[in-house]
């Protein structure tokens, strides 16, 4: 585990401890289950965008893709489509969305910010139009319900929610891909120095496209999870701003927007920190109006600390190298 991940883990434990000490309701089974559930959902989005951020890019469309997938799922069921088939179609759709982002960014050479900002607007608009901007309830679809939003009871009121299992599978695969495969290594190399990677025979365009595909795909998965969790979808709001939580989790978790850096475990803990903060602010008795301000400050503090530590390490390294020389 790297220093950054340790730091963020420490932050998590600190906030957890303070909240626990100040409100006895915090540690009850129901609240814990909720915390695990929402942290998992945030983490899945965060892992997706981490891949894009590692390439030095950004994806602002995550929240809208979540909204689109959730809306289309509700719409399809209402129209009497086979729910399981729809799930596969929607996952396919999110792959295609990622592919289009990737192609526009690598082949047409548009900036990731612009492409995905347009995506953010476009998918949201389409969702609202297709659903007539009507809030839709999720009808009971046997099987899928418990698959996406089920629980495995452990003890008392505490249970393990479905999204946690999704997260575990996704995180293991993602960490394996990033750390053990040649493509993960290539991704880190291209994030650090795209030209250098290209000159070493790495097909940088393909890898970048892959990163956007992964990101949109995980947004699609999140869309289904959120929809089933909320049991309804509001086309104008479901998933709104979630891309910002995802990006915040990735950045706090150790991804540099300059690219080339990222640790999956760090992103998961960071997602948990963000979720925990929202929970704590409520329970500790701070005005909920301050919620965003506090989350913003914590993230800013986290990345500042990270940057300062990095600078000290770099300085020490330079001094060592020079000392070894003379």
């Amino acid at each position: 585990m790297n220093k950054n991940t340790l730091g963020i883990l420490g932050l998590f434990i600190l906030i957890f401890g303070i909240t626990w000490a100040s409100n006895e309701n915090f540690a009850n089974g129901y609240n814990m289950t909720n915390l695990v559930k929402w942290s998992s959902l945030y983490a899945i989005m965060g892992i997706g965008v981490a891949f894009v951020i590692i390439t030095g890019g950004i994806d602002l469309s995550i929240g809208s893709v979540i909204g689109l997938v959730a809306a289309l799922m509700a719409l399809a069921i209402k129209q009497g489509w086979n729910p399981t088939l729809t799930v596969f179609l929607l996952l396919g759709l999110s792959l295609v969305i990622g592919l289009i982002h990737g192609l526009l960014i690598t082949k047409v050479k548009l900036q990731p910010f612009v492409v995905t900002l347009c995506g953010l607007l476009f998918y949201r608009g389409i969702s609202r139009w297709l659903t007539d901007n009507q809030t839709m309830q999720y009808p009971n679809t046997e099987g899928l319900d418990s698959f996406f939003s089920g629980k495995v009871g452990l003890f008392g009121q505490f249970s393990l929610p479905s999204p946690l299992f999704f997260l575990i599978v996704i995180a293991v695969l993602a960490a394996f891909f990033l750390n053990r495969t040649i493509w993960g290594r290539y991704l880190l190399a291209l994030g650090n120095n795209e030209d250098g990677a290209r000159y070493s025979g790495i097909q940088t365009d393909r890898l970048k496209i892959t990163a956007y595909v992964i990101c949109s795909f995980l947004a699609g998965v999140s869309g289904l999870l959120f929809a089933y969790e909320l049991d309804s979808v509001q086309p104008a709001q479901t998933g709104e701003f979630y891309e910002l939580y995802a990006i915040a989790a990735a950045v706090l978790g150790g991804c540099s927007l300059r690219g080339g850096q990222g640790a999956i475990f760090g992103v998961i803990i960071a997602a948990a920190v963000i979720r925990l903060l929202r929970n704590s602010i409520n329970l500790v008795g701070i005005s909920t109006h301050l919620e965003f301000a506090i989350i913003g400050l914590v993230i800013l503090g986290g990345v500042t600390a990270d940057e300062l530590i990095k600078r000290i390490v770099a300085k020490r390294r330079t001094a060592q190298v020079n000392a070894a020389k003379s």
């Binding site: 190399a189 120095n193 030209d195 250098g196």
Partner: peptide, 15 residues
């Protein structure tokens, strides 16, 4: 173009 400067000697050699 020649190196990925932020990566180690090992990672550059094997790239």
């Amino acid at each position: 173009h020649g190196l990925v400067l932020e990566m180690s000697v090992r990672e550059n050699i094997s790239l």
